[in-house]
Amino acid sequence: MPIGTKSRAVTLAVALVAAVTTVVHPAAAATGDGSPSDSNIRYFGRWDTRSPGAYVSEWAGAYVVVGFTGTTVKLRQRGSIDLFTSVDGGPWVSRTNVSGTVNLTPSRLPSGTHTLRVSYRPVAGSYHGDAVFQGVLLDSGARTVVPSAPSRIIEFIGDSITVGQRSSKQALTAYGWLTGEKLGAGHTQIAVGGACLYPTSDGCIGMRDRFLKTGLDAAKPDWDFSRYQASDVVINLGTNDLSHGVSGSQFQSAYVTLLQRVRAQYPNATIHAMETFHKRYVTETKAAVTARNNAGDSKVRFINTEGWIDKATDTADGTHPNDAGHQKIAARLVAVIG
């Protein structure tokens, strides 16, 4: 090879190495920087991640776990939101109507490695906070680390009872969250207030179909079920359908469809169909479970909830459990799910 040609080849090779380094480096730098796309951060529940700088959770009970070094941590929020935070396994702190940069450690933490958990108040009634996670800000020189997080995940599908409405911290004091915590499992509540199982003409959200979605609205993209696999799915639906004119046959057919869809997405999960606390559509719920069992799916089970709570003392309004009621339900579910 002539000297000039060899020189040009060497120059080209150096340039190519530099170009590759330039492309790879920013991606590597993202790990540890506290941005939403930081691969050290763990997300539980369904998060819309289409915008790399702003991850959105709409279903109740979604949360973020961040391991980090240093002595301070700040949360980056967009619009106003009510949220809950816990540092190093401490009590959950309620933060109301916060936005922008939210200082979670006005008193510095000891030097070392720490863990932050964040969960947002779900949409309920007239409340529509901006549940958008834009990452965390850490001390200069600090970075995120992979946190300790459970591999087992339990998913709860339901309505306002599963959301935890009328309990003190809503999703965090609801039976689903409490059950997951007691079992040391990850958990999420795919639930919204007022939901039905069967979609009705008067606008009741039908969880038969919304179970498949990333967010609350029917126009939201379908959820990518490869992002996590639930080991158990607990369904508590039927409290609202009756007041929307859903017939027994419609309810039973919709329940069978939902059970089929859950099984298609979670091939190895145990699916638990709870008897509603108002004892509505009990026959139809049992029949749907039996239909799936007869179709060869032995890991679909009916949960009899007779005597689990007392409406007079364990609910806030005769329907929605109070904190004590949710704790009683969780204790029962822990024994069932194990």
Rank of each mutant, 00 (worst) to 15 (best):
R46M: 15
R121H: 09
P52G: 10
K299V: 01
Y228L: 14
S39H: 09
T101L: 04
R8S: 01
R117Y: 02
G238A: 09
T188P: 00
D297R: 03
G135T: 01
D241C: 13
G176I: 03
L212K: 12
S298Y: 03
E181Y: 05
T214V: 04
R152F: 01
A27H: 12
Q229V: 05
P147N: 08
V123W: 09
G193K: 00
S119W: 01
V192P: 00
T179P: 08
G158S: 00
N294R: 12
V145F: 02
M274Q: 14
G4H: 08
F211A: 06
A291E: 07
A291W: 07
G296Y: 10
I154N: 05
T257F: 04
F44P: 05
T69G: 08
P221R: 06
M207E: 06
L183H: 12
R76W: 04
A30K: 08
V64F: 13
D222W: 02
Y55L: 15
S298L: 02
P110T: 07
A273C: 10
W47K: 13
V146E: 12
T276P: 00
P52N: 05
K286M: 08
T319S: 07
G34H: 11
G215P: 01
A171N: 00
D314M: 03
D297Y: 13
A131N: 15
A287V: 04
S168P: 13
V136R: 11
P2A: 14
A149M: 03
D202Q: 05
W92A: 02
G135Y: 06
T144A: 10
F251R: 07
G296M: 06
T72S: 08
A19D: 06
T319E: 06
H272I: 04
D317I: 15
E306R: 11
T71V: 08
T270S: 07
A142M: 09
W92D: 02
Y127C: 06
I153G: 00
R42K: 14
F211N: 03
L216A: 00
R166W: 03
G245F: 14
T173D: 02
S243R: 14
P122D: 00
V73A: 06
G318S: 15
G34K: 05
I303W: 04
S231G: 05
W223P: 06
V23S: 09
N97H: 13
H272C: 04
V132T: 14
A131E: 06
R95A: 01
S51V: 08
R166S: 10
K182P: 09
I157Q: 00
S51D: 14
P106A: 13
T22P: 02
M207F: 06
S201P: 00
A185V: 12
A54F: 11
V289N: 03
C196I: 00
A185I: 12
K6R: 15
K286H: 13
M1Q: 11
A191D: 01
P52V: 09
V246E: 11
L237G: 02
N268I: 12
A295T: 06
A335W: 05
Y175L: 05
N40T: 11
A174M: 02
D232M: 02
